[in-house]
Amino acid sequence: MESDLSAAHEVVLAALFDYLPEGPPRERETPITDDQRLVEDLGYDSLAIAEIVFFLEDLFGVIIQTADLKNLQTVGDLRTYVDGKLAESLRPE
Protein backbone atom coordinates (compact mmCIF):
# COMPACT_ATOMS: atom_id res chain seq x y z
CA MET A 1 0.00 0.00 0.00
CA GLU A 2 2.79 2.44 0.88
CA SER A 3 4.55 1.87 -2.42
CA ASP A 4 1.22 2.52 -4.23
CA LEU A 5 0.84 5.90 -2.53
CA SER A 6 4.43 6.82 -3.24
CA ALA A 7 3.84 6.18 -6.92
CA ALA A 8 0.65 8.22 -6.71
CA HIS A 9 2.65 11.17 -5.34
CA GLU A 10 4.84 11.08 -8.42
CA VAL A 11 1.81 10.91 -10.69
CA VAL A 12 0.15 13.90 -8.99
CA LEU A 13 3.37 15.88 -9.37
CA ALA A 14 3.64 14.90 -13.03
CA ALA A 15 0.04 15.99 -13.62
CA LEU A 16 0.71 19.32 -11.92
CA PHE A 17 3.75 19.86 -14.13
CA ASP A 18 1.79 18.92 -17.21
CA TYR A 19 -0.97 21.42 -16.57
CA LEU A 20 1.36 24.17 -15.37
CA PRO A 21 0.61 27.50 -17.07
CA GLU A 22 3.31 29.08 -19.15
CA GLY A 23 5.12 32.21 -18.07
CA PRO A 24 4.62 34.22 -14.89
CA PRO A 25 4.02 34.12 -12.01
CA ARG A 26 6.47 31.24 -11.80
CA GLU A 27 9.41 29.93 -13.76
CA ARG A 28 8.76 26.40 -15.03
CA GLU A 29 12.24 25.23 -14.03
CA THR A 30 11.57 25.77 -10.31
CA PRO A 31 10.72 22.50 -8.51
CA ILE A 32 7.14 22.07 -7.30
CA THR A 33 6.95 21.73 -3.51
CA ASP A 34 4.15 20.81 -1.12
CA ASP A 35 3.88 24.27 0.40
CA GLN A 36 3.25 26.04 -2.90
CA ARG A 37 -0.23 27.44 -3.44
CA LEU A 38 -1.93 26.26 -6.65
CA VAL A 39 -3.32 29.64 -7.69
CA GLU A 40 -1.11 32.29 -6.13
CA ASP A 41 2.27 30.57 -6.51
CA LEU A 42 1.84 28.26 -9.48
CA GLY A 43 -0.56 30.38 -11.53
CA TYR A 44 -3.31 27.81 -12.11
CA ASP A 45 -6.77 29.16 -12.74
CA SER A 46 -9.98 27.40 -11.75
CA LEU A 47 -10.24 25.75 -15.16
CA ALA A 48 -6.73 24.32 -14.92
CA ILE A 49 -7.57 22.89 -11.48
CA ALA A 50 -10.73 21.38 -12.97
CA GLU A 51 -8.63 19.83 -15.73
CA ILE A 52 -6.21 18.30 -13.19
CA VAL A 53 -9.12 16.95 -11.17
CA PHE A 54 -10.69 15.49 -14.34
CA PHE A 55 -7.37 13.82 -15.19
CA LEU A 56 -6.82 12.40 -11.68
CA GLU A 57 -10.39 11.14 -11.46
CA ASP A 58 -9.95 9.27 -14.73
CA LEU A 59 -6.54 7.91 -13.79
CA PHE A 60 -7.30 6.73 -10.27
CA GLY A 61 -10.98 5.91 -10.73
CA VAL A 62 -12.02 8.21 -7.89
CA ILE A 63 -14.59 10.99 -7.64
CA ILE A 64 -13.44 14.37 -6.35
CA GLN A 65 -16.37 16.43 -5.10
CA THR A 66 -16.65 20.04 -6.21
CA ALA A 67 -17.24 21.04 -2.58
CA ASP A 68 -13.80 19.61 -1.67
CA LEU A 69 -11.97 21.71 -4.26
CA LYS A 70 -12.07 24.86 -2.16
CA ASN A 71 -10.00 23.10 0.50
CA LEU A 72 -7.27 22.17 -1.96
CA GLN A 73 -5.16 25.32 -1.70
CA THR A 74 -1.64 23.88 -1.95
CA VAL A 75 0.23 21.10 -3.71
CA GLY A 76 0.38 19.29 -0.36
CA ASP A 77 -3.39 19.61 0.09
CA LEU A 78 -3.94 17.98 -3.28
CA ARG A 79 -1.51 15.15 -2.65
CA THR A 80 -2.96 14.42 0.78
CA TYR A 81 -6.47 14.50 -0.65
CA VAL A 82 -5.57 12.07 -3.45
CA ASP A 83 -3.85 9.80 -0.89
CA GLY A 84 -7.06 9.72 1.12
CA LYS A 85 -9.19 8.95 -1.90
CA LEU A 86 -6.81 6.17 -2.98
CA ALA A 87 -6.72 4.70 0.48
CA GLU A 88 -10.52 4.64 0.48
CA SER A 89 -10.67 2.95 -2.88
CA LEU A 90 -7.98 0.39 -1.97
CA ARG A 91 -9.49 -0.47 1.44
CA PRO A 92 -10.82 -4.07 1.49
CA GLU A 93 -14.64 -4.31 1.56
Binding site: Y19, P21, E22, G23, A48, E51
Partner: peptide, 8 residues
Protein backbone atom coordinates in the same frame (compact mmCIF):
# COMPACT_ATOMS: atom_id res chain seq x y z
CA UNK B 1 -0.01 28.53 -28.81
CA UNK B 2 0.35 28.27 -25.01
CA UNK B 3 -1.39 25.32 -23.46
CA UNK B 4 -3.69 27.48 -21.36
CA UNK B 5 -5.02 28.87 -24.65
CA UNK B 6 -4.95 25.59 -26.52
CA UNK B 7 -7.04 23.79 -23.90
CA UNK B 8 -10.17 25.82 -24.76
Amino acid sequence: IPRETLRG
